[in-house]
Design a protein around this nucleic acid. Structure first.
Length: 277
DNA sequence: CTTGGGACCTGGCTGC
DNA sequence: TGCAGCCAGGTCCCAA
């Protein structure tokens, strides 16, 4: 499930190979993945050069020579492969570049999407701040959270509050901050929000350093796996012991999403402030 | 307006 | 062994 660290890894590992190249062919194998753009308009891609590759939240942004942007969202199972040995049967789009390389957008569950637009902000304008950017600060996070009265887990998953965090890293950040996923945002103390801020940053940056987490279908553009999942403390560790205290990790549903946490380390009790090392 | 719940998608797993 | 039904979580949509 490509979240911020996975999309950042795709961007970083693809850039050296494709920036500066032009599209020579764009084959749409499944037209349902195209958004706000017709199949005919999509062919405007051919001939355009990739000026830069960027990322906003979980979106991968190709900035093109004609000021258009090719935008990809990977949904649950999307991958973007460079020169795969064969085309998977769930390939949704195949791109050919001027240096002879081939880019294949795969997506088993078809929750991913592709846009070709004059203005990328049509897609990204509602997104909250980038959690790794300089303008994301503890006071900014406090302002965002205190405007709402929702479970903090739901807030972390809301892309319009903070961009890029998905289910895995929300659970990891809340564990790192020792905050119960159901705790309501407006009840978080200033120290708790500050701890959560650094937890979010640390969890995301560590995952980028590990080239993302391969827990389901995510693989890197040249086929290697990510290793961030080996550092998970609670995510995907249902019924296993908490690495901090040994208590059995629980799984609950928050807003319909499976949520892993340690009931001892992440208490809902107001008197239990996070313990810092 | 906010919040919460369901729908969509598909392959893999569970249980009868 | 076969197969219906459930589950995963990305976003969007709708109801209270």
């Amino acid at each position: 499930m490509p979240e911020l660290p996975e999309v950042e890894t795709i961007k970083n590992e693809l850039s050296p190979w494709i920036v500066g190249q032009s599209f020579t062919q764009a084959a749409l194998l499944d037209k349902e993945i195209l958004r706000q753009c017709s199949v005919e308009e999509f062919q405007h891609l051919v001939g355009q050069r990739i000026e830069t590759l960027g990322r906003r939240g979980k979106y991968l942004l190709f900035h093109l020579s004609s000021n258009q942007s090719l935008i990809m969202h990977f949904g649950m199972t999307g991958t973007l492969l460079l020169n795969p040995k064969r085309i998977a049967h769930y390939a949704r789009a195949v791109f050919h570049l001027s240096n002879g390389s081939q880019l294949v957008f795969n997506d088993q569950r078809r929750l991913g999407a592709i846009w070709l637009l004059e203005n990328a902000t049509l897609v990204t304008h509602k997104l909250g701040p980038e959690p790794l950017s300089q303008n994301f600060t503890p006071p900014v996070l406090a302002g965002l959270l205190r405007k709402h009265r929702i479970p903090v887990k739901a807030a972390l998953l809301d892309q319009n509050l903070i961009a890029g965090i998905g289910n895995m890293y929300a659970d990891e950040a809340l564990f790192a901050a020792r905050i119960h996923p159901l705790k309501k945002t407006h009840t978080l103390s200033t120290p708790e929000i500050q701890t959560l801020f650094y937890a979010i940053r640390d969890v995301l940056q560590s995952a980028i350093d590990s080239k993302g987490a391969t827990v389901d279908t995510y693989i890197r553009p040249q086929g290697q796996l990510g290793t961030a999942q080996f550092n998970f403390k609670v995510a995907h560790r249902y019924a296993k012991p908490c690495p901090a205290c040994g208590t059995t990790i629980q799984r609950i549903l928050v807003r319909g999403r499976g949520t892993h946490f340690c009931p001892h380390c992440q208490s809902l009790n107001l008197s239990t402030l996070p313990k810092l090392i």
